[in-house]
Design a protein around this nucleic acid. Structure first.
Lengths: 236, 236
DNA sequence: TTAGAATGTAACAGAACTGTCATATCAAAG
DNA sequence: CTTTGATATGACAGTTCTGTTACATTCTAA
């Protein structure tokens, strides 16, 4: 996770005043906040964007929070979820945690407490995801990359300078060698903001990498595009 | 953490009946439970033994729970701590979380809820300590599937990329190995809550899987169709 | 046995996504 | 204030994926 990039939070809450209060306060805490006011709206953004945490009201229009949570978990998304609920019956709370929620607060809640819990959930989850750093120097099938010097030697043996973003993206892909990295993840980590859907920016960087490192740019061996998902780097 | 060894929990609570109730119930859940009835006693065992979780009453004789928590954290011990308190003032809860507690319950609490939270804290912490233990990889009778890389190796030994939907459906079926997954379930999970494709779509995906993974597509061994219900994946 | 329903199969078309390039924007350096 | 290199955007073409349709085949129940 890039230090400069903010953690992202989705607030799914139908009552406007509370929604805006949460948004404002979370932003003051330094989070990037997206909001949704109905169940379907929440599901839609979750599908399209990456979040570090979801604050989810149990009672939402159209599709309720518990169902939302269940759906999200069924789609193998293990983003932390913090439930909000007006009800305070034990049964309800148990229900929330069982469905895969990570924490639970009942309204009315203390704002400071919410912020603390949010922070706790986010840092905890990040710890898990923090990938092991790659050394400053990396080599694969005849190509060399020196992250410290911001330069590389490509297939043709030519030395090539790497720009900041090029280096960051390259590092990200190499850290996940053999795995697909989604566009959302890339934007989140390298760029530090949420999705701008019609951007061809990432493609252009990949294009460059292929020029530097691929013998045949049309049939990439190292920089694969996985349609609908993202890109994958393979060492050999 | 060794699978065969139980997770260990320290219950620091001065009221005897509650302490014993907790001990009993946690042991029934399969935890190894140690108890302490005063602040100093709790600090002492924490110093000498390893725990996966501490259940800590805020009001303890001699040294209160918040101070205990602070002391433990100062010793760079990040064992999860679940606070118990009779008070329900927001300030108090905030205090607990600030001092480094991981969760908070107010008495009287629902026992099942406590057990769920205990379980959540313990598993969460383990995840951090065993990074990536569960590989996103599956193998059955000569075929290999790598969900992280979005690719598979089929019966013929050929590598094959998996598209988004293919991967999602495959994962679903494999997770339910040996069970029938209904068409409705498939639609709900793979396609989402309201974008149902109409007719022969699922069949076509199954068709592909059979091409990839079955020696004889006419007599499938792995991807069975259960008439009137759905599909079933069998490993061998 | 046979009608009716569910599934298998393949071809096709529209949608969605990516590759590529030309151009715009921006910030830092000169 | 200009230059320059890096990055972002938009257009468009090319590609792949996915859902649909049509028809064949298999199964089930009457």
């Amino acid at each position: 996770m890039n230090k400069s990039s903010k953690a992202t939070v989705l607030v799914a809450e139908d009552e406007e005043s509370l929604r805006e209060t949460l948004k404002l306060n979370l932003e003051l805490e330094g989070y990037e906040v997206t909001t949704a006011d109905t169940g379907p709206a929440a599901l839609k953004v979750v599908k399209n964007e990456y979040f570090d945490l979801i604050v989810l009201d149990i009672m939402l229009p159209e599709i309720d929070g518990l169902t939302i949570c269940e759906t999200i978990r069924m789609q193998h998304n293990d983003v932390p979820i913090l439930f909000l609920s007006a009800r305070n019956s034990g049964a309800d709370r148990v229900e929330g945690l069982k469905k895969g929620g990570d924490d639970y607060l009942t309204k009315p809640f203390n704002l400071e407490e919410l912020l603390l819990r949010v922070n706790k959930l986010i840092t905890k989850n990040k710890k898990i995801k923090e990938p092991q750093a790659v050394a400053d120097f990396y080599e694969f099938s005849g190509c060399k990359i020196d992250f410290a010097a911001h330069e590389c030697v490509g297939k043709n043996g030519l030395k090539q300078e790497l720009s900041k973003k090029e280096a960051a993206l390259l590092k990200l892909l190499i850290e996940h060698e053999g795995e697909v990295v989604s566009r959302e993840q890339i934007l989140q980590i390298v760029w530090g903001y949420n999705v701008y859907p019609t951007t061809r920016t990432i493609d252009n960087f990949i294009l460059n990498f292929r020029k530097y490192f691929e013998a045949d740019t049309r049939n990439p061996v190292h920089f694969h595009s996985i349609r609908g998902i993202g890109y994958k780097f393979t060492a050999n």
